[in-house]
């Protein structure tokens, strides 16, 4: 296994200044494994803990967050390691792509600098300015940026959103990482640009065999790109399976609701899934199954006991009491 996550929990300390400090459980015991060359999608509503799960393992949690559990990447422990040892992996073995390309790049530094510095820190003594520049320009070309030589000297504000996201992708790819974590890489972009970026990611995957974890709201988007889908709700994995299993044999009422929900077009973020009811308040999660207040199939025990994980098929797991079909 390339990446093994065991019982990962992420807590935030929240201080409203009115009451005593509270603990917000953003991720509540997530375990998952990822093989070299495997592509998975993480889907779930806003606030379900998708981003914080991966921020935790990259050591990127906000200051009021803490992570517990264990994570290993190619036999190396990741969780709560020093920045120094994490920096041997971040950007080199694992690359990250973020949601909002408008803010992910430093507005005060030229694109070229922000690209080549990845090589600068990871190649140490072997670093050569000229070859770094050449490789950065090649990479810009690779992610289909026009006039890469010229763009190398541009500032981020001189580029469009889609172009900036390509730069971010190029940055993540420069060191040929084994794993790329893409956190909603298309949410902030226009619909036409979205498909281009996804096509680019597919292309990268086909050529480099880099594993991709794609975090998204958009189920249809992942269909062509990923092998496996992991559905998260309120900080837990509720169902996981192959694309076919999730699309055609979904077991969990939440997954079914996600699939049934028509994508509604909102002005900026493209497709957003709308399901009846409100996502749970992370500070006051319902006892038992967190989905119970919104679930159409809720039973008595759902409100008191947490549903255990059940195996439907080899790789198809679901956490729900209801046994149908």
């Amino acid at each position: 296994m390339m990446l093994t996550i065991e019982n990962l929990r992420v807590d935030f300390t929240v201080d409203s200044g009115i009451q005593r400090k509270q603990t917000l459980q953003a991720v509540r015991g997530v375990s998952l494994e990822l093989d070299q060359g495997e592509n998975v999608a993480i889907v779930g509503e806003s606030g379900s803990g998708k981003s914080q799960l991966f921020n935790a393992l990259m050591g990127l949690l906000p200051p009021n967050g803490s992570a517990h559990g264990s994570v290993s990447f190619n036999q190396q422990a990741l969780l709560n390691q020093s920045d120094k040892s994490l920096n041997k992996i971040r950007g080199k073995e694992i690359g990250m792509i973020f949601q909002d390309p408008m803010t992910a790049l430093n507005p005060y530094l030229r694109i070229g600098k922000q690209l080549t510095e990845v090589l600068e820190v990871h190649e140490g003594a072997n670093f050569n300015k000229e070859s770094a520049k050449r490789r950065a320009i090649e990479m810009l070309d690779r992610v289909k940026i026009k006039d890469p030589e010229q763009r190398f000297n541009s500032y981020p504000h001189e580029l469009s959103g889609g172009m900036r996201q390509r730069v971010v992708i190029a940055m993540a790819l420069l060191c040929k990482p084994k794993l790329i974590i893409a956190d909603e890489p298309t949410t902030a972009l226009d619909v036409t640009v979205q498909t281009e970026i996804i096509r680019l990611l597919k292309d990268i995957y086909r050529k480099e065999r880099t594993s991709i974890v794609l975090i998204t709201h958009d189920l249809p988007l992942v269909a062509g790109l990923c092998d496996r889908i992991i559905v998260m709700y309120a900080g837990k994995i509720v169902e996981t399976g192959t694309v076919d299993e999730i699309f055609y044999k979904a077991q969990h009422p939440y997954t079914q609701a996600l699939l049934a929900a028509t994508p509604t077009n909102t002005e900026k973020s493209g497709k957003m899934l709308a399901i009846d009811g409100q996502p749970p308040d992370p500070l006051n999660l319902p006892a038992g199954c967190a989905f119970s207040p919104r679930c159409a199939f809720v039973e008595e025990r759902c409100k008191t006991e947490s549903p255990p994980e059940r195996k439907i098929d080899a790789g198809h797991l679901v956490s729900c009491f209801r046994e149908n079909n």
């Binding site: 929240v14 201080d15 409203s16 200044g17 009115i18 009451q19 509270q22 917000l24 906000p62 200051p63 009021n64 308040d281 992370p282 500070l283 006051n284």
Partner: peptide
């Protein structure tokens, strides 16, 4: 802005006007 707005809103004691909440926060300082 470490803490997103919604959390504060969720967390606020139910039934207090913004001014009352502010007053409570002040008294906790």
């Amino acid at each position: 802005a470490l803490i997103p707005n919604e959390i504060i809103a969720d967390n606020a004691v139910v039934g207090l006007s913004p001014w009352q909440q502010a007053w409570r926060r002040l008294l906790n300082n």
